[in-house]
């Protein structure tokens, strides 16, 4: 699941996959802006076949937190 999320992130941000850790913060460390982040959350719905609550999902500030959130929806 982590690999899949990292692959998704690298479609949005010009970053090497091994620079992305579970503790990486989307905005500060990876370089997302709010628009790109929301769009990536939208793509997560298809990639992980889940339905996301935007407000809840947007509250996940790190890769690990988003992974846990997505895992909980399965």
């Amino acid at each position: 699941m982590l690999e899949k999320l990292i692959e998704l992130i690298t479609q949005y941000i010009d970053i090497e996959p091994d620079e992305i850790k579970e503790g990486s913060r989307f905005m500060e460390d990876i370089g997302f802006n709010s628009y790109d982040f929301m769009c990536m959350l939208g793509d997560c719905e298809d990639a992980f076949d889940v339905e996301i609550d935007e407000a809840e999902a947007a509250g996940n500030k790190t890769v690990g937190a988003l992974l846990a959130y997505l895992g909980g929806l399965k």
Binding site: S34, Y35, M38, C39, L41, G42, E54, A55, A58
Partner: peptide, 10 residues
């Protein structure tokens, strides 16, 4: 406004 715009983006 932020929440409404985020939903619109999505």
């Amino acid at each position: 406004i932020n929440k409404a715009q985020q939903e619109l983006f999505l």
